[in-house]
Computed example of a mutant assay.
Amino acid sequence: MNGPLSVATIVVALVLAAWYFLRSALDRAPSRLDLLAMAGLSALVTVLVVVAVIGLFDGTRPSDTATFGGYLVTTVCFAPAAIWLARLEPTRWGSLILGVGAVVLPVLVLRLQQIASVIS
């Protein structure tokens, strides 16, 4: 779980979050490019989750596999949910929704790293 892919996911998510919060502060609705950027982040998160799932089969499992699985599902579903909600709200609040979604993703990735580091 620890590695360049996790770091890249966290950095990209935080940069996008700053961008979305700026757009919200400037009273701008999410553009098509904003939604595509969040979809790109979602793809990056999906790759991270697939790598983590493959890591479960190499013999080293976290001590609490059920919690780890729950975080994996939440992590992979969070960005698409933010995109869907932002499309429903085509105002500055849609940009804020994307920003909050982008801020939560690094927290989820860090939590996955913490759970994965405790091996049974």
Results as ranks from 00 to 15, higher is better:
Leu96Ser: 14
Trp19Met: 12
Pro90Trp: 11
Ala39Ile: 03
Val73Cys: 05
Val49Ser: 05
Leu88His: 15
Arg28Pro: 15
Ile115Asn: 04
Ala79Ile: 14
Pro106Lys: 02
Thr74Pro: 08
Thr91Ile: 08
Ala39His: 10
Leu112Thr: 04
Leu14Tyr: 11
Thr67Arg: 07
Ser63Met: 09
Thr67Asn: 03
Leu98Met: 10
Arg87Ile: 06
Leu36Tyr: 06
Val45Glu: 02
Val50His: 03
Leu35Asn: 08
Ala25Ser: 04
Tyr71Thr: 08
Gly69Leu: 06
Ser117Phe: 04
Val51Asp: 01
Ser63Val: 05
Leu16Phe: 15
Ser63Lys: 08
Phe68Asn: 04
Trp93Arg: 07
Leu33Asp: 13
Gln113Tyr: 02
Val15Trp: 05
Ser95Leu: 13
Pro30Cys: 05
Asn2Cys: 08
Arg32Asn: 08
Gly70Asn: 10
Ile83Ser: 11
Leu35Val: 10
Gly101Arg: 08
Gly94Glu: 11
Gly40Glu: 06
Leu35Asp: 13
Asp58Arg: 00
Tyr71Arg: 06
Ala25His: 05
Ala17Leu: 12
Gly94Gln: 03
Arg32Ser: 08
Ala8Leu: 07
Ile97His: 07
Ala29Met: 14
Ile119Gln: 12
Leu41Val: 14
Leu98Lys: 05
Ile97Ala: 04
Leu44Tyr: 02
Ile83Cys: 13
Leu22Thr: 09
Thr46Phe: 06
Phe21Cys: 11
